Simulated scan of single mutants.
Amino acid sequence: MTDEGCSAVTSALESNPSHLRELNLSWNELGDSGVKNLSDLLMKPQFKMEKLHLYRCSITKKQCLILTSALKSNPSHLRELDLSGNQIENTGVNHLCDVLKDSHCKLKRLRLRCCFMTLEGCSALTSALKSNPSHLRELNLSWNELGDSGVKNLSDLLMNPQCKLKKLDLCGCRIREKQCLILTSALKSNPSHLRELDLSENTLSDSGLKNLSELLMNPQCKLEKLDLCLCSITEKQCLILTSALKSNPSHLKELNLSGNKIKNTGVNHLCDILKDSHCKLERLSLNDCGFTDVAALTQSLTNIKALQFLKELDLRYNVIRDSKQQLTDVLRDSNCNLR
C-alpha cells in the first residue's frame, strides 16, 4: 500500500472511529499524505486506538513530527507503539519524547528497533521515560548505537523504583564490557519486575558476564527469558553463567546461547541446571556452539523433571553424528514433550 491506499483507509476509519483498538500498517509506504491522514485520525477525540504498528513504513523525521504531534493531542488510550525499522533518527525520537513526557501517556510497549538512534536520542528517550516511568512494561532499542551516555541514562531509568519494565531488548546495540557492567548493576538494584532480557550480539566480556551472573543469582530476580546469542561467551564464562543459573533455577523458561563456542565443557556445565529438580526450562537453544558430545546432555534430559518441561531443543550446526542414537533414545522416552 502507498499513500493513496493509506489515505483511503484512514478516511474510511474517520467515518466510524470509535471501535477500532488495533491498527497494523507495517511494511507499507505511507508517504506524506498517508501519514498526514493517519495523524488526523489519531487526533480525533472519539478515536481510542490502543495498539499502533508502523514497522518499516519508511517514516521520515518530518513525518514522525506530524505523527507524534497527533499522538500528543490524544495520548491517554495508546498502550503499544511500534516504529521499528524507520529512519527517524535522534530528531524523530526527540519528537516522540514529547508524547512520553505527557502525564496522560500510559504507553506499555514501545518498540524502536533499528531507528538509527544514537546516544543523544537514547539519552532524550530515557530522560522522557524517567519523568513518567510507571506504565512502561516493554522497551525494544535493538540495533541502535546507544553509546556510554545512552546506556548510563537507560540504567538510571532501570534503577528508578517506579520502573516496572518486564521486557528489555538490546540486541546488537554494541554494548561492551564497561556498559554491560553499568546496565547489569542497574538491573541488580531493581530486579523483581524484569522477565525477559535480550543482550544478544553484544560483547559482554568477563566482568560484564560476571555482573550479569550476580543479577541472575539474586533471589529477587525472576527472569524467564534470557537471550545471549552471539555474545562471544567462552567455556570459562559459561561455567560462571550456569553456576549463577543453578543457584536460582526455578523461574527461567527460555535460554538462548546459540553462536557461542562453549563446546563440550560449556554444555556439560549447562547440564547441571537441567539435572536440578527446580529447573523448569522450556526452550533451550544451542545452535552452532561447537560441541560434539551430547552424552552428558542426553543423560541430563532423561531426568524425568527436565523432559516434562522442555518443549524446544535447538542443536543445529553442531557435529554430533556419533551421538545421534542417544538423542533418538531421548525422543522415544514416554516423558519427552519436545515439539
Rank of each mutant, 00 (worst) to 15 (best):
V319A: 14
L119Q: 12
S334V: 14
L313Q: 04
S250P: 00
S26P: 02
C180Q: 01
G121R: 05
T184E: 00
L42Q: 04
S142P: 07
T328F: 12
L41W: 03
L41G: 01
K225I: 12
C6S: 15
P249Y: 05
L170T: 03
L226F: 10
R137I: 05
R137W: 03
C173N: 08
C336E: 09
K44R: 12
C336N: 08
N303S: 13
R332L: 12
L197N: 01
L71V: 04
L252G: 02
D276K: 03
L168H: 07
K236Q: 13
T91P: 00
C289Y: 04
L223I: 13
T60Y: 00
S232D: 12
K261W: 09
L165Y: 02
I304D: 10
P45V: 11
L216P: 02
S33G: 01
Q237C: 04
K51Y: 08
A124W: 04
M43Q: 13
V35C: 13
D40F: 13
S142A: 13
N190H: 09
L331C: 14
L252C: 06
L327T: 05
S323E: 14
T234S: 14
H77C: 12
A186Y: 00
L83A: 02
K305P: 01
L216W: 07
E50R: 14
L107N: 03
N335R: 10
L112T: 05
A296G: 04
G259E: 04
L100C: 09
D206T: 07
K261N: 12
P249A: 08
L212D: 00
L241E: 06
Q220F: 02
K166Q: 15
C114T: 06
T118H: 05
D98C: 03
N16Y: 06
L25S: 06
L81F: 08
P133S: 09
L71Q: 01
L245N: 03
L239M: 10
T234V: 09
S18F: 06
N190S: 06
I88L: 07
C173W: 01
K222E: 10
P219Q: 11
R174L: 13
D198C: 11
N24F: 09
A244S: 08
L228E: 02
L168W: 06
C171W: 09
K178F: 10
L212W: 01
P133E: 08
T242S: 05
L83R: 00
S250I: 05
L199M: 09
L119S: 14
L331T: 11
D206Y: 11
L13G: 05
L212Y: 02
E22Q: 13
D40S: 15
K253L: 13
K44M: 12
L181M: 10
M159D: 00
I240D: 04
R137C: 10
E80Y: 14
L146A: 09
S11V: 05
C64K: 00
R283I: 10
N37D: 11
N318C: 11
